[in-house]
């Protein structure tokens, strides 16, 4: 399996550590009224799509970038790879 690192080019999957769904980027506001419910959903509820999924991979044996990898769970095709820190934060908070 190969992940096309936005800075370093194609790298073997063995250099990466997998975390999980990229929705972990969207950490809820601790001050919101129903923060407990939101954090519960944030931490425990996941979609399990047959198809496209966005997930977090860490380049542990590389440059320590956290990447958002868009992958098709049916074909294992990787359609997009972005640096997590480049993900638009406004988009993040609007969700």
């Amino acid at each position: 399996m190969i992940i096309n690192h936005p800075l370093l080019g194609p790298r073997d999957a063995s250099e990466f550590i997998y975390l999980g769904d990229a929705s972990l980027i969207d950490r809820p506001d601790w001050n919101s009224e129903n923060a407990a419910q939101q954090f519960y959903e944030y931490l425990y509820l996941r979609d399990n799509p047959a198809g496209t999924i966005r997930e977090l991979w860490f380049h542990e044996y590389g440059d320590r970038s956290w990447l958002v990898v868009t992958r098709n769970t049916l074909t294992h095709e990787i359609v997009n790879v972005e640096l997590a820190r480049d993900i638009d934060r406004e988009e993040k908070h609007s969700r």
Binding site: I25, L56, E60, W66
Partner: peptide, 14 residues
């Protein structure tokens, strides 16, 4: 270290 980088890059990148 992985967690610290996650917090920085994914949660508080600014």
């Amino acid at each position: 270290l992985r967690h610290m980088e996650f917090c920085h890059q994914c949660l508080w990148p600014n």
